[in-house]
């Protein structure tokens, strides 16, 4: 299925899914659809943009997508359990700001390389601890107090951003040790390190969701919380767990952002990042009790191909970086419409 065709980008979406059966294969067919879409877009840009199919541009995509990618995994968990998490981006910025403060204030200027590495490790731990605490607060509000997720995380989004603003006074935190840029700007065997981190967390999240009892319970809880409670699942604990892990993933995003920009700020990404993560989840068909990590991964790749592709295709054109936003919206609408017809055909055939 992946060999695809190289013309008419709309055709593969409408193409009949591989299998006519239900169940596993049907879920798989969504993965195939996304994969085909990714391949088509990739080929499309390889043909129309001269330098798209180069190591350089592919590497740069590898550097750019991980931030949004890891953040989307955090968003996915909340949607998967029947909620939403608007505070993901505020969490990553708060984690980055606090870890950044630590690095700026406590790393001695004359520290040796190895010592700095140790300090960096502590800074990462601080970031992750901050993310964890943010997740705990979300989990408490949603799981224990019973605030609807959209309201709870809207409130904590403001709260976490408020802490960042208060601590930094709105300024950008800079002056990090150069070793930090390993996270954001180095490669191993030609593969960008942030991309490896993204792949690592994708695999970890996949295992968590599909191979552990925690993931199993998250899925059932998302599907029907009342029945989950009546099956002896401790809903509160599972919700707490989902938001804690989401908080940690957000913190990892914060570290990735620091590594790439060598700075931390309360406003990085702002609301648009949150909405983009939701958008990717929608494209990847993530719903309460439904969704696959691999689909989310592919959807992130699609976003990046689109973004880089249009940027390169329109380079020199005024405002070229913004065309991707427009294209993204149009693509999403087209995918919705295509899904509508595919669903209709499935309903007819069954």
């Amino acid at each position: 299925m992946t060999q695809g065709t190289n013309d008419k980008p709309a055709a593969p979406i409408r193409r009949k899914p591989l299998a006519g059966a239900f169940g596993k294969i049907r879920i798989g067919s969504e993965t195939v659809q996304l994969l085909v879409l990714a391949v088509i877009l990739f080929m499309f840009f390889s043909i129309i943009v001269e330098k798209f199919l180069t190591v350089r541009s592919i590497t740069s995509m590898g550097f750019q997508m991980p931030e949004l990618g890891v953040l989307t995994l955090a968003m996915m968990l909340s949607i998967y359990t029947g909620g939403i998490n608007l505070s993901v981006n505020a969490t990553s910025n708060l984690a980055a700001v606090l870890a950044g403060f630590f690095m700026v204030r406590y790393i001695p200027k004359d520290a040796a390389g190895a010592v700095v590495t140790l300090y960096l490790a502590v800074a990462f731990l601080i970031a992750i601890a901050v993310g964890w605490v943010c997740g705990v607060i979300n989990g408490l509000l949603i799981g224990y107090v019973g605030v609807p997720p959209i309201l709870a995380t809207l409130a904590t989004m403001t709260l976490y951003t408020g802490i960042s603003v208060g601590l930094t006074g709105g300024a950008t935190v800079t002056g990090f040790p150069t070793q930090l840029s390993v996270i954001g700007a180095q490669t191993i065997l030609g593969i960008p390190i942030p991309f490896l981190i993204f792949v690592g967390f994708t695999i970890l999240t996949y295992i968590l969701l599909d191979r552990t009892s925690f993931g199993f319970k998250m899925r059932l809880l998302g599907s029907n919380p009342v029945a989950a409670e009546f099956s002896g699942i401790n809903n509160r604990a599972i919700i707490m767990g989902a938001y804690m892990y989401g908080g940690i993933l957000s913190a990892v995003t914060g570290i990735l952002i620091m590594g790439r920009t060598m700075s931390a700020a309360y406003e990085y990404g702002a609301t648009t990042y949150v909405l983009l993560t939701i958008l990717i989840c929608v494209l990847a068909n993530v719903n309460p009790g439904m969704g696959r990590v691999i689909d989310v991964f592919i959807a992130v790749v699609i976003l990046q191909i689109l973004s880089t592709g249009f940027q390169m295709a329109l380079s020199g054109v005024r405002g070229s970086t913004f065309f991707k936003d427009f294209a993204w919206g149009v693509l999403l609408v087209l995918v919705f419409i295509a899904n509508y017809f595919i669903r209709g055909r499935r309903a007819q055939s069954s």
């Binding site: 958008l279 913004f322 065309f323 936003d325 427009f326 294209a327 993204w328 919206g329 999403l332 609408v333």
Partner: peptide, 8 residues
């Protein structure tokens, strides 16, 4: 989708 589209 339209939010992104219109700003874009």
């Amino acid at each position: 989708a339209l939010y992104t589209m219109w700003y874009g």
